[in-house]
Simulated assay, not measured.
Amino acid sequence: MKMVFVMDPLEGIQRDHDTSYLFLQEAVRRGHQVDHVLPSQVRWDSWRVVFVGRSVSFDGPPEAPERLGPPRLIEGPDLDVVLIRTDPPFDADYLAVTLLLDLLPDSVVILNRPSGLRDANEKLAALHFPDLTPATLVSQDPEAIDEFRQRVGGAIALKPLDGFAGKGVLLIRDGDPNRRALIGMATQGGTVKVVAQQLVDTSQGDKRILVLDGQPLGAVLRRNDTGAFTHNLASGGRALPARVEESDRRIVERIAPWLRQRGLDFVGIDLLGGKLIEINVTSPTCAQELNRFDGIHVERLVLDHLERRANRFAPAPVIDQ
């Protein structure tokens, strides 16, 4: 297959952690023609989408085996698969890339569907299932946010709508003399909407469940033992083994039709205290950690899925739970 990975630069990538890197390796191992494309190199030219990409190989030294070829022009309609693996935030440039990728012919498989990425804000998507989430307010009104805090027990988490990796998350509690200032800072003086969520038990960490085509592949617990409020690996959390419990499975079953309808084939859902917190759709991580803990190969399952969708007749996956 001819494949393009639209993703951030490979320089500085964490080879033993990054999920996109794992997918790149597997695609090359299978003999596919794989190109790395920066988001800035997705274009419309005359009558079609084109990319300026660099071929990917893994024949370098063990400490840095990836190799990129010289830039070359790639015709979008000739591709079989495009993977959008750019890290958040979902800003104007990210939006433009999804709009351009929408112009590819239907014969090109895109993971995840560009319109689905636009529809599913990672902080708001879970609100399609309000019975699964903590009590939530989305507002830019500082007074409404503080009133909500009092109504749900005195403690809330405040999150920016375009935040990622735990950045910008604030804890607001009763008795904090700075709470109004913090709310004002988060809302930029009442001009920017934020997510305010009832605080649930965070002491045991949060659980990331990777989901492929509506099926849970497995779970990883993320826990920050330093006393920090957030547990994201990027903010100091560490990965620990976890199970997909029956209650977790019911959550996945609830959201699976919604994901499939929007072409969101590969996502990561975050649970905290058994509650659905986020649905991560842009570039879900933790595949390498899940592989190490559970002995599975997420990258093989994802590539099998893409090959089937591109009519390459890969065998159906067998997922041990």
Rank of each mutant, 00 (worst) to 15 (best):
G12V: 10
K193I: 00
Y21S: 14
L38F: 00
I172Q: 04
I269E: 04
A96G: 13
G12C: 03
L73W: 13
L161G: 11
M185C: 06
E289D: 15
A96K: 12
I279S: 03
D16R: 15
Q140K: 14
Q150T: 11
G236R: 09
V56N: 00
L117D: 02
T191I: 08
D131H: 15
S283A: 09
A181G: 09
T98K: 04
H231Q: 09
V52E: 15
R249K: 11
T133N: 05
L104W: 08
H32C: 04
A239W: 10
V81K: 03
G175T: 08
L171A: 14
K2M: 08
E122M: 11
E122H: 03
D106R: 15
L217H: 07
T230C: 13
G205N: 01
D162T: 05
D102A: 13
L38V: 06
E66V: 08
F148H: 05
L271P: 02
L212A: 10
L95Q: 11
N311W: 13
S46N: 07
G31K: 04
S40W: 12
K275E: 04
L117T: 00
L217Q: 13
A120R: 03
Q188F: 12
Q261S: 11
I13F: 07
N280L: 01
R72E: 15
G268Q: 00
D16G: 12
I319F: 10
G205E: 07
I319Q: 07
I296M: 12
L170M: 14
G53H: 02
P89M: 04
S107N: 15
A92T: 09
F229Y: 15
V281C: 10
A234P: 03
K2S: 13
I319W: 09
A196L: 05
R173L: 10
L210N: 02
D35S: 13
G218C: 03
L158Y: 06
A64I: 06
V28H: 08
S40M: 05
V109C: 00
L199C: 09
I296C: 13
V298L: 06
L158C: 03
G31W: 02
T136F: 06
R43V: 06
T86G: 00
L158T: 07
G214S: 08
L79Q: 12
K207F: 07
L212H: 06
D265Y: 04
